[in-house]
């Protein structure tokens, strides 16, 4: 049994010693040309179709984003709160940075 194992293994290993080269399928060149022409025409068509599509979809995305931003900011006003205070003014008041002059100019 032990002697048989290497013999079988060697037989299997040598099974490709007389192998012949496999031939490419018939009409290989014709099929290749057909595929090349198909790929080239699809590529050309693709470019023709995709370029304007990309530009249009880019514009649509920008418009949608703009719309979304406007929708989210509706009623907030341009930087003012409901009482008409400017956001910067509120922050400045909170941190008392609008009274930074050492001398009161009204005096």
């Amino acid at each position: 049994m032990n002697k048989k194992k290497p013999i079988i293994t060697n037989e299997i290993l040598n099974s490709l010693s007389d192998i012949r080269r496999a031939k490419a399928p018939g009409f290989f060149y014709t099929q290749l040309r057909a595929r090349m022409e198909n790929e080239l025409s699809v590529g050309r068509q693709g470019k023709r179709i995709w370029k304007p599509l990309l530009i249009i979809s880019g514009f649509v995305i920008i418009l949608v984003l703009n719309g979304w931003v406007l929708y989210n900011n509706r009623g907030r006003g341009a930087g003012s709160d409901v009482n008409g205070y400017d956001k910067f003014q509120i922050v400045a008041n909170d941190y008392r940075i609008n009274n930074f002059l050492p001398v009161d100019l009204n005096q």
Binding site: E11, I12, L13, S15, L16, D18, I19, R20, R21, A22
Partner: peptide, 13 residues
Amino acid sequence: GVALDQKENAARL
């Protein structure tokens, strides 16, 4: 391209 008598061994290889 494998000879008929080697088909089984070649498949294993």
